[in-house]
Design a protein around this nucleic acid. Structure first.
Lengths: 196, 196
DNA sequence: ATTTTTATCGACACGGTGTAGACTTCTTCG
DNA sequence: CGAAGAAGTCTACACCGTGTCGATAAAAAT
């Protein structure tokens, strides 16, 4: 099972690449209605307008679909991520801007990000994507913290996971993400000052 | 499906209550070897020395077993929890003690706690147990923070989830939990000072 | 000692998964 | 154009884990 991808189809913008996108779109759509484990290969296929067996031509399993979907979303996130980092801004401002940016990601891609978190325990590939993203963020932040005299990378890491979890629950509960961002930023800044 | 429990058997230390414990023990044992979703009702039953169908006499599903197991563990945790809170200790000391206590919980019950976190998205009953525990901890901490002039409950909540996630990953990766506790305590204390 | 509750088991039906193999539709190049 | 072959789709099937049913055994209760 699972097939590691790439055995079949590989190159070129063939006709059925639209299908591939359609499948991901259908899956993303479904995430809005049913939970991940209720979502069946059948339902995804139906959403994409093809038969169950046809879907297996493109993806080896439901989890491969979800992995591709998370990958697409993570790419989109990091694409619009590294705009910031104006070198002259105050450290606190950089931190606040980063947290706000995170809030926006959750606003835009909350459904998929939630699914990514939910699937992190079960799916190695998704775990890799997600922890990879968080760790990238963490190392970037470690640099920023260092500029403020806080050296330990473990601190940045812990704060990143705090941010992740807090936004996750806020997204699940439908809380106000601006407030959430405020809370997170406050802790980030406190750590910034408190450990020089 | 699922049967909501209680329809069958209810009172007394009947003979088969041992079985019930045996089943939970078997499940906990299994958590050490295979992941939650690989674990099958069959394997749990086998571990408890009974047949698959017999297990359904005690629990309505694999998830009910896991829920009971998490419940048992959470009870054990909270049982030995509220020892602390000596009213004259410094706020920072209380915080450090709490975090260290959390580290001990993860040391002792890491397997089940990890499973609880993993199952939180999928199983409402376990989500209730877990968020309940964390929230109890959060409100207790809110009081402590208030004593230090930091009023916002959202801060304590965010810090609790930071602690949860950080220990979760440390437990998964086999990191040193003392170091993890140190990191968490540092952020707790920074927030304590930084936001008066 | 027998009646009732508690516990166990074998057998079944169901639903979702993944695969095999036949079939159709595109593409492309002689 | 028109055959070869690649890309895409479908029906049918076998598998596996789940949960239930009814018959039966073991324990408790009377």
């Amino acid at each position: 099972m699972t097939e590691a991808r790439g055995t079949k189809r590989r190159q070129g913008p063939r006709k059925g690449d639209l299908r591939e996108k359609a499948i991901l779109d259908a899956a993303e759509d479904l995430l809005g209605r049913e939970s991940v484990e209720l979502m069946t290969v059948e339902s995804i296929a139906k959403g994409a307008g093809i038969s169950r067996a046809a879907l297996y031509f493109y993806f080896g399993s439901k989890l491969e679909v979800l992995t591709a979907l998370v990958g697409r979303t993570v790419d989109a996130m990091t694409a619009q991520a590294d705009v910031a980092q104006a070198a002259d801004a105050s450290v606190e401002d950089v931190v606040r801007a980063s947290v706000r940016h995170t809030a926006n990601s959750w606003r835009e891609h909350g459904l998929v990000m939630r699914a990514a978190v939910d699937l992190t325990p079960t799916t190695p590939a998704i775990r890799a994507l997600w922890t990879g993203t968080v760790n990238r963020y963490a190392t970037a932040m470690t640099e920023v913290l260092t500029r403020a005299g806080v050296a330990d990378p473990a601190l940045a890491e812990a704060l990143c996971w705090m941010t992740e979890r807090t936004f996750y629950w806020a997204s699940v509960n439908g809380d106000d993400l601006d407030r959430t961002a405020e809370t997170c930023a406050q802790i980030w800044c406190a750590t910034l000052r408190g450990n020089n």
